[in-house]
Amino acid sequence: MRVGRLSDVPRSVLIIEDDPRIRRILQMTLQREGLDAVEADSGETGLERLAERDFDVILLDLMLPGKDGFEVCREIRRTSNVPIIMVTARGDSHDVVAGLEAGADDYVSKPFVAKELSARIRALARRTRAPQPRVRIEVGDLEIAPQDGTVTRAGEPVNLTRTEFKLLCELATEPGRVLSREELLERVWGYDYFGDSRLVDVHVRRLRKKVEEDPGHPTVVTTVRGMGYRVPG
């Protein structure tokens, strides 16, 4: 299992987008921001590029000819935890949720502004906030090492994506405190305002599948109805 390099500043982005004009514009914009932007015109090409080298962030259009974005996303997730930003049709609720379920970390909707996109990329690539070095957090039989970016359950490593890991860390570093969806959006995804709370909900669902003994009756990350989520202290 490969993990994208942990760096505060993302260096490389893979753009999987079939529209050549958008691809070109994105590449130029991201390159201006100092990113190494690599283009791929289909899901298949994108997977090939990803097999050749690592990227810090992947930008994935959901509407692709041939292998569609959801399928590509699932395939990337089988081998990598690299942050994925999907590009969806605006307001297509179904696409957003399906894309997140397939393993995407965040999304932008067309038409989007390049600045919005680079803000998303930077936020995703950011390291988790680790207050003290070498701290280990224990929640039940889970052991979280924020510095190393690893989680073990009864000694067995648990494979989380970068975003799932950040989410778990935010909740676990303040056990007992309820974090609202808005707070989590700000801390994990870097949204100042107007975030989509579905991002949080779907990620919590994904996280539970990996860390809970019975995801139907969560004990690690619990829901506080109408308020948010917490890790019981």
């Binding site: 529209d19 004009r21 958008i22 514009i25 994105l26 130029m28 914009t29 201006r32 049709a89 605006r90 067309k110 038409p111 989007f112 502004v113 390049a114 600045k115």
Partner: peptide, 20 residues
């Protein structure tokens, strides 16, 4: 409006590029 989204995205990006 769906068809307009892609050219619009390209236009927004291009405007940003020129603006730089």
């Amino acid at each position: 409006s769906h068809e307009l989204r892609s050219p619009l995205t390209a236009m927004l990006g291009a405007v940003d590029l020129v603006e730089a």
